[in-house]
Design a protein around this nucleic acid. Structure first.
Lengths: 221, 221, 221, 221
DNA sequence: AATGAATGAGCCTTCATTCAT
DNA sequence: GATGAATGAAGGCTCATTCAT
């Protein structure tokens, strides 16, 4: 029933915003302290230096706030439903941008494209479990495909989702902010799930036709 | 037909590498000058300041080196072939990472996620034409879909491709560098084209049946 | 007969080591506290500030631990024996370096070369009595010499002894640590006493003959 | 005929004064820059950081200014004259305190008692040659003594000289500044030379009598 | 009596920029 | 056209000190 250290927490919260907005090198520890309402030496007192603050901020990003499980889906549901649940859960975090603690998502996205030593833990504890979960779902559609193919499927699903955060600023300029707003969580969940199901449910025989390099060599499978 | 100032060119080239590697704020003008074999005051002499150097570097990234129209697809080909050609062309740039001038791609990718004032021109002159071209292709598959839906299709295609650059560091850790190598240009062109065609070629009637809120009602799948 | 505050004592002991090793400004109060196993605010709590801690440490250096009067020489002994006893006592402290409380000696040596306000007391209570004692001894050799000459003799004796602490690091590099080890307390007591006696016992008449500006005149030598 | 860089030279000069006065850690680079009339970033521009400035300052201390050779003594002079010349030359630097460039001496004295990595060069290039020179002189007095004994003689000579710099502040308080002034270069040269000659010229037979530990064991030699 | 959290002054250093040549 | 020297602003960080408990 102990009250958690408010200064340190506020510091991490402020650092999260700054790091997510500006990146590590452009973020100023002074700004972080001001934002946290703390003294300019506070980060050095609590974290040693800027880099350790960054590490702790990234770790906190998925320890404290990323337990937003997308799992309302029962395991007994069909694979399509599981995929839809996965996409929904994934997108819900990808699209979260205005809510409090949104910096956690933005910061983790930064780690995806520009990994730092801090992202090792991130991959191990957050991303890999999620990736394995997706692979399981996909394997129910394509039990005979090699891993390589499954990976490509997984990346296709993930890539579609992530794109809405990664390239959001550009997307806004391309189709306008209002139109982009209409591509909301429900719409995109439906779209991406359907889009992906079409490929996954296509008969394996059809699938094989598509490999131009192996047409003669691989007759029936 | 004058030979361009070699120092200025070397400067932009060096700046491109630095900016692509480290981002704007983490890049050091001194490092850029050293890399270009120029004096420490060279960027200020040639470009005024760091920011203008960045702008010119970004502009050069698609003016000088983005002779990106490697699309050998004839207009008379079927839409599937056109899509394949588009994906192939897009992926070829996305996957280019080791070749000289690779910084141009990496730098533009940075602009996607963290747009700067310099990216306005980028969107207008490079990205939008490409996006429109993709929309044309997709519209031949789905002439009756609203724009909103077409945008979603386009983003699905683009997102799949871009993911292999955006999240490449993480992907390497997830499936291993060697396995990731096997997902090469040919393989991914085939995979993404097929994956997308499956969704695009599915009848619109099927498409519409998939209401996201009919989970229990969903009959067969 | 109260047991003295153990924390305060440990603090002074730790401070002594730090100050003797690094000097006043390079010593860190945090390191002192850590070394004393006390809280980081302990020195400010017990001593007010760093400077007062230094003063108290210097004072303690000769109050508590400088039971330096190990001179077993009887007053009735000849002056040569008294000189030997003095040199022995002085050297024994000068050469003490590894024993516990060695910081007291090292710290006082620092005060010799870089005096601080704290060294006023040191001179008055420790150094001057010792100096006067040496002058008494020397005066028995040279009752007719002026003070100026006696001072020079005294400084010659003291200078020879102190050199083995002052320039010890350099001496080690010059002749090697092992060879320097052979110049131990007994050896040096003998050497310095003999060396000095030779000068002291030389007849004053001889002494005066040695005019520095009679280089050619110098007869035999 | 090139004019030497004034800023860098002024910087070293100012640094010399500061370091000699306050030691490395207590010296402020800002003060050094102010004293040199240079910008606060000047030391970092010219030397990289404070530590490298210190090293260069120490090196400069004996490269540029320590070529004040005490050698007006001809090699053909007797050993006593050579010793006198050595003492004179050594003392002249030891006592130099008010003249310009005096910081060189004070700084090197600091290195004697508190050696830093920078003092390696100092020992090798400045101190050891001087020490060897002294040993040569002494060996002419005592050709049969072992090295150990010669070292002790050398340290006795050096110790007497150095004491007037090492403990000068304390000596002032002990005998008064005015009296200390009378112990000037000429007086001390004479005193220390005579003092040392008495010991050196004492017959070897006498010398041996003095070793109390070997009285019975070492009868005649 | 003693501590952990927090502070503020100031230091070293970095870095883009300018200036004289 | 280009450079080396020099600068000013600002950043991260250290450290002694203070305060509430």
């Amino acid at each position: 029933m102990e009250v958690q250290d408010p200064t340190k927490v506020r510091l991490i919260d402020a650092a999260g915003e700054e790091f997510a907005d500006k990146g590590f090198s452009a973020a100023r520890v002074r700004d972080i302290c001001v934002r946290a309402g703390a003294n300019g030496a506070a980060v050095n007192y609590h974290f040693g230096d800027k880099e350790q603050l960054y590490v702790e901020t990234v770790l906190c990003a998925h320890h404290c706030g990323m337990d937003m499980e997308e799992l309302p889906s029962n395991e007994e549901a069909g694979p399509a439903e599981q995929l839809r649940a996965f996409v929904h859960g994934f997108l819900s975090r990808v699209l979260a941008i205005d809510e409090p603690n949104a910096w956690r998502h933005r910061l983790m996205l930064r780690e995806l494209t520009q990994p730092t030593p801090a992202s090792d833990v991130l991959v191990r504890e957050v991303i890999r479990p999620k990736f394995e979960r997706l692979l399981e779902i996909l394997r129910r559609f394509r039990p005979d495909d090699p891993d390589q193919k499954l990976y490509a499927f997984a990346f296709s699903v993930i890539g579609q989702c992530l794109h809405y955060r990664m390239a959001r600023p550009v997307a806004e300029r391309l189709i306008g902010a209002e139109t982009l707003e209409t591509l909301d969580l429900e719409f995109l969940t439906e779209h991406i799930t359907t889009f992906s199901l079409a490929a996954l449910e296509r008969a394996a025989s059809e699938q094989d036709r598509e490999s131009p390099r192996l047409i003669e060599a691989k007759p029936s499978l």
